[in-house]
């Protein structure tokens, strides 16, 4: 018996290589992934290369050097208390990525299981879960986050919780839609017919096959979450001085906009670049996980 010559490579390796190929195929996606990688490195290595970590972490002031424009000594200039803006903006990357990860992660933790259960079980459970998400979705997310943050009290942690509370219903919805379309697939039917318990079906068959759209959405949301947390801090509901949070820096910087434009410029740019990069990554992921772009 003659066997076909086309025995493919091991699946996992092939998948990784193929994903790599797709990432590099679209130059914008490559740029997005590149920036995110750089941001991660910056956030991790901040204490190593930042000239004045004490300005960022402790908020040590040095009023004699207040509002200096960018120079060799102060790359991004200094703020009204004489702190090195470069150090503070770089440390801000840590805070922003942390907020993004934790807030999105918490929202996923709430939203995904609820969507899974609602979509798979349907009926009354679905009805209850979806009406609750509808209530949450009827508020603009920023407004809801502001309300919750105000209720919980001013702190960065509370801001993250507030954002997660405003965001989870989106994941529930997305997840439910994907799960409903998967529920009818023959491999799920097969599992039910062989008597596989419902929880096992939900986890082993449905969940693993419905994560891609949620992951894409989460990476797109990363940017919006960072923006929202900046907005909360800007309003005084999030990070508290002297934390080097970009929104908080901006809220002080706007008072000195005319005399020290760099003060607003650098944290602003940092935010724009970060949000843009995560959007590019999200778009790229969408393309990679889209079955239509895979193979022939």
């Amino acid at each position: 018996m003659a066997l076909p010559a086309n025995r493919p490579r091991p699946a996992v390796l092939e998948q990784i290589r193929y994903s790599g190929y797709l990432i590099t195929k679209n130059s914008l996606t490559t740029v997005g992934f590149g920036i995110v990688l750089v941001l991660l490195v910056i956030a991790l290595l901040a204490p190593v290369f930042v000239p004045h970590p004490e300005h960022a972490v402790l908020g040590t002031t040095n009023v004699a050097e207040a509002l200096r424009p960018p120079s060799g000594r102060y790359l991004f200039g200094t703020d009204e208390l004489g702190r090195d803006l470069f150090s503070r903006v770089i440390y801000g990357t840590r805070i922003s990525l942390q907020i993004g990860t934790l807030a999105v992660g918490l929202a996923l933790l709430i939203g995904v299981p609820l969507g899974l259960v609602a979509g798979y079980l349907g009926g009354f459970v679905d009805e209850v879960i979806m009406r609750v998400t509808d209530i949450f979705l009827s508020f603009p997310p920023l407004l809801l986050a502001i309300a919750v943050a105000a209720l919980l009290g001013r702190s960065l942690t509370n801001a993250m919780i507030a954002i997660a509370i405003a965001w989870w219903p989106w994941y529930t919805r997305l997840m439910r839609g994907t799960v409903i379309s998967l529920r009818e697939k023959p491999f799920v039917e097969a599992a039910r017919m062989m008597g596989t318990p419902a929880t096992r079906i939900m986890v082993r068959h449905v969940l693993v096959n419905s994560l891609s759209p949620v992951i894409v959405q989460a990476s797109l949301d990363f940017g919006s979450v960072i923006l929202t947390s900046a907005a909360l801090s800007f309003l005084g509901l999030g990070a508290q001085p002297p934390q080097p949070e970009w929104g908080l820096i901006l809220s002080t910087a706007r008072n000195y906009f005319l005399v020290a434009p760099w003060y607003s410029f650098f944290p602003g740019m940092a935010m724009v670049i970060t949000v843009l990069a995560f959007n590019l990554v999200g778009d790229g992921l969408r393309e990679i996980t889209d079955p239509k772009t895979r193979r022939l």
Partner: peptide, 23 residues
């Protein structure tokens, strides 16, 4: 339904979607 679930099995039409792609 224990006996039924054990003693009766099914093969589906669609060979693409009848197998979990992640297993």
């Amino acid at each position: 339904l224990g006996v039924l679930r054990k003693e009766a099995q099914m093969v589906f039409q669609d060979p693409y979607w009848s197998l979990n792609p992640r297993m």
